[in-house]
């Protein structure tokens, strides 16, 4: 397996496409570039990555599953604005291969409570579609739909032997992960 060439950090800094950045990072790890010598470059790329464009969860997971033969630990961090069935189908190759899979769904508090007041035109960050919305009219329905979506996501992932974790963007992700790993270690020890 040929390790991809690591471009100059200045060039990487100008890359704004998240998918391209993700590909570099994933291939870098899979190629063993997470060694001490190349790790700073990968972290640098991650730090400069800008969220943009449309995600392709199933494709990314399939690519990783095809290239990772040894059992390992996979963590999927996403807002999971996809049907639960699609997510489950996407991670099924990983759980089927015996990997430990943890899915962290990260949401902004506003995405859960929808606190807006003014009639506003909202723009979809991925597709760019626009929609005029009067928050007061849709808030209740929105919260119900969001709650159902989260519950469905949790139930389907758990049923497929994947750990599900709902995180808030107001909290640091490392702390969330630390708490989760600590709790998992406690449960394993207890068993």
């Amino acid at each position: 397996m040929t390790a991809p060439a690591i471009p100059d950090p200045a060039v990487l800094a100008r890359i704004g496409d998240l998918e391209l950045v993700a590909r570099w990072v994933v291939e870098g790890f899979l190629s063993g570039l997470h060694s001490a010598r190349h790790l700073p470059h990968l972290l640098h790329v991650l730090a400069r990555a800008i969220a943009a464009g449309k995600g392709n969860l199933a494709g990314a997971v399939a690519q990783v599953a095809a290239r990772q033969r040894r059992r390992g630990f996979f963590m999927l961090v996403s807002d999971l604005y996809e049907p639960a069935t699609d997510v489950v189908n996407a991670i099924a190759p990983l759980t089927g291969a015996g990997h430990d899979v943890i899915v962290v769904q990260v949401l902004d508090p506003a995405e859960r409570t929808f606190p807006f007041e003014d009639a506003t035109t909202f723009r979809d960050l991925e597709s760019g579609a626009r929609m005029p919305v009067t928050p007061g009219k849709v808030r209740t329905a929105y919260r119900a739909r969001m709650g159902a979506h989260l519950e469905a996501m949790r139930a389907r992932l758990t049923a497929h032997r994947a750990d599900y974790l709902l995180a808030d963007t107001s909290e640091p992700l490392d702390r969330v992960l630390f708490d989760y790993l600590l709790r998992r270690e406690f449960l394993r020890t207890a068993n």
Binding site: T121, D124, E126, Y142
Partner: peptide, 10 residues
């Protein structure tokens, strides 16, 4: 327009 992650539930 205000950016929002997804309009699926709106």
């Amino acid at each position: 327009a205000v950016g929002f992650p997804s309009l699926a539930f709106l």
